[in-house]
Every structure is written in structure tokens, then in C-alpha cells.
Write a protein that binds this DNA or RNA. Structure first.
Lengths: 206, 206
DNA sequence: GACGGTTGCAGAATAATATTCTTTAACAGA
DNA sequence: TCTGTTAAAGAATATTATTCTGCAACCGTC
């Protein structure tokens, strides 16, 4: 359901029907079998189409992986921005970041799982520069936003702060998506947000 | 240097020379080119050996990846156990966990980088059961150890605790290994350990 | 509503890569 | 020395990714 919405929004229209279907089926296969273990032939068979069509839309296997990856990244960013728009203190910002992270993973587990597993491939491949620049601007915006709230996070190195905020949530989401733990991260969203905030408060009482 | 020691310890003797060399060169190639982008032929050329030798030692490409992965896992566990042996309070335990994690990544960056990237492949492949059982027993031991220190972490769900302890360090180590941040995690080891401990303390003053 | 150009798709042909298999040499113990 | 076991080589094969050529659907324009 959400998957359908996500794809419909990013690649709308009747003429993109096959493209969306390739996205959907490839996502499933990559997650079930692993990225290198799924062959173009498997995707072709699943979509009942031709290899030519797949290469027409995505160039090659790596391009398909990258397209899936950036689609997920964009959707995640959309939710984060919407949460941040309502936050007006540093604490509210930290909560918004953790909550948006957790909620997105909970609502799009398939995309999240893929995102984790494909990051390395994209980091090495021809889209590494795009990924790097996106990461850089995102982190910069984040730190500027936090600074603008007039808070007191100055005692931490800037490059450490993003990890302090989302590290724990990220770790738990990974564990959940790989089946090592059972409880949905959404069930712990407040605990995770408060833990992150506590870890940042060196002096004042939470 | 440390790499040589690690390999010499795990696979000692003159007759394992080629095996160690394959390990070393494959590790480098996997990290530089990515796992699927490095071919058996590249590894063969780098080691100046034959494909037969590689398949003789590791079965197939997946087996080589898994062997590298578990070697890294074992080495990491060895350091963790040595740190934990000296800790006798819950707080000291949390510090030991964060410190051992950070110090290992700092001392074996190549192995750590590979470990991050190969986890998914191993999770899907024929060694998934071994990995799963290792994870399970490790977490169980950890929680039992913490419980035995007579602490007060009962307010958190058990499955959440490991992420709360090492999540932030893990996140920063990933960022460092992929070049997104510059400062070695070792420089922040105390900050990370204290942040983790703070995040766990709901009532008492740090 | 024909027409030129563009995009979407098919599938055989090809290239790159992983894996197997057979053979030979080196070694370790009796 | 003999014997079984392990190490290594490399040609042969199987699998998989990618290319390329041709055809059909579509889209704006006259």
C-alpha cells in the first residue's frame, strides 16, 4: 500500500507502469535473495518482461540499485522535513529526527532494509559523488538548524552530533529489519528519542 | 602490521601462506572495488596464483567473503572479552563495550569496513544460521553479565539495550570508515562511552 | 489523419564472470 | 620408500550481465 503510494508519487502515470513494477519486484528480490544473488533474469521473469526493457529504463543492474536507493532516500527526507517543520526547540528537533527516522522505517520496512544493504554498493559505484554531496548538505543543514535554536550542544564536536542523535535508533532499526529483535521500533520511538536527548544533556536535568 | 598479526594468529604456519595472502589481497580489493565488482580473476592476479587454489581454500566467492567476515568477528570478540574481564560495575561494563568497539575499529579499519559491508551477504548466504546463533548468544551473555552487576537497567526492554549501548559508536564508526567524517572514533571514545551511559540513566545523576 | 521523431519494449547475440573438473606436485606420517 | 592427503594449476564449462538491432506504441505537428 504505502509502497504503491511511494512509487506512484515518484513515477506517476500510465506509461511508467512497467517501470514501477520493475522497482517493486526488484526490491522484493534484492531483499529476499540478496543483491548479487538476484539475476536480471529473475527480475525479468517476475515482471514478465524482457531484459531489454530493464536495461532501457535503468542502464544496468547497478543503475537499478541506485535508482531504488535514491528513491528511498528521497522519501525518508520528505518525512524528516515534515517533522522538523513543526519543531521549534533543540529538544523538539532531536525528537523529530528520531521519530521521523523510526516512523519511516516502520512504515517502509522493505525500502529501509534495501537502503541499508545497498548503501555500500552505491558508495562505490558511479553515483558515489551524488550520495556524498547529499550526505554533506543534509548534515550541514541539520547542524545549522540545531544551532539556530540557540541551544547548548557546543560541547560536542559537530561531526559527532548526528551519530549521537540517530545512532541508537539506527542500530535498533537494523536489528529489527534483520530479524534479530521482535518489537517494532515504533513501539520504542519515545524511549529512543528521550535516550538520545539525555545523552546530549551534560548539565541540566533532562 | 596488525593485519599480519591477526592473520598469523588465525591461520599460522608456512603452509597457510597463500591462504593468508588471499585473505589480505581479497580484503583490499573488496574494500576498494566493492564485493560484487571484484572478480575472482582480480584476486587471482593480485596473488599471482590460480583460480583452482582459491576455490580449493574457500569453496567459492561467497565462502571467501564469509571466511573474512567471521575472522573479523572473532577478532572483535576477543578484544571485547578482554575489556569486559576488567569491568566490575554496570557503568564500567558499558564503558568497556563502547571502548572495545571503538578501539577495535580504530586498530583494524580495513577489517571493520569489510565487516560492515559483508554482513548482509552473510546474512543471506549459507552461513546465516551460524551468524544468527552467534548474535543471539552474544547478546544473551551480554545481558546476563549486565544483570549480574546488580544494576538498574530494568526500565528498558532487553532487546533495546544493546542498541542503546553501542548504537552511537557504531554510527560514528561507519561514518568514519566511509569518509564522511575525519576524526578517528578513538579520539571520541570517552565522549561516546559517557553519552551511552547517560542515555541509560533515567534517574540518578550520571 | 498521415508523418517524422521519440520513447518503450523484445529477444537473440555477445562478453564477462563464476565454477567445475581433471591432472600434477608437494607434503606428512608409517 | 610407500601411501594417503592436501595444495595448486589451468583448461573447459556454466551462468550471468550487457549490447545491439529491430519493431511497435506514442506524441506533437502540419
Amino acid at each position: 500500500m504505502e509502497t504503491a503510494d511511494l512509487l506512484e508519487r515518484c513515477y506517476p502515470g500510465r506509461r511508467a507502469e512497467l517501470k514501477r513494477d520493475i522497482f517493486r519486484k526488484a526490491l522484493g528480490l534484492f531483499n529476499e535473495q540478496g543483491i548479487e544473488a538476484t539475476t536480471i533474469e529473475m527480475i525479468r521473469a517476475e515482471c514478465d518482461t524482457s531484459v531489454g526493457a530493464i536495461y532501457h529504463h535503468f542502464g544496468n543492474k547497478e543503475g537499478l540499485v541506485a535508482a531504488l536507493f535514491f528513491t528511498a532516500l528521497d522519501d525518508q527526507a520528505r518525512l524528516r522535513d515534515s517533522y522538523l517543520a513543526d519543531a521549534h526547540t533543540a529538544q523538539a528537533g532531536v525528537h523529530a529526527l528520531v521519530h521521523s527516522y523510526v516512523d519511516w522505517v516502520d512504515s517502509q520496512p522493505e525500502w529501509a532494509r534495501f537502503q541499508y544493504h545497498a548503501r555500500f554498493a552505491v558508495t562505490k559505484g558511479p553515483f558515489k559523488d551524488e550520495l556524498a554531496s547529499r550526505n554533506k548538505t543534509r548534515n550541514k543543514q541539520l547542524l545549522e538548524w540545531l544551532g539556530a535554536q540557540g541551544n547548548e550542544l557546543g560541547c560536542f564536536p559537530a561531526e559527532l552530533i548526528p551519530s549521537l542523535i540517530v545512532g541508537q535508533a539506527d542500530s535498533y532499526c537494523r536489528a529489527w529489519l534483520s530479524g534479530r529483535v521482535k518489537g517494532s521500533p515504533k513501539a520504542y520511538r519515545d524511549m529512543l528519542a528521550e535516550a538520545a536527548w539525555r545523552s546530549l544533556c551534560t548539565t541540566e536535568t533532562q
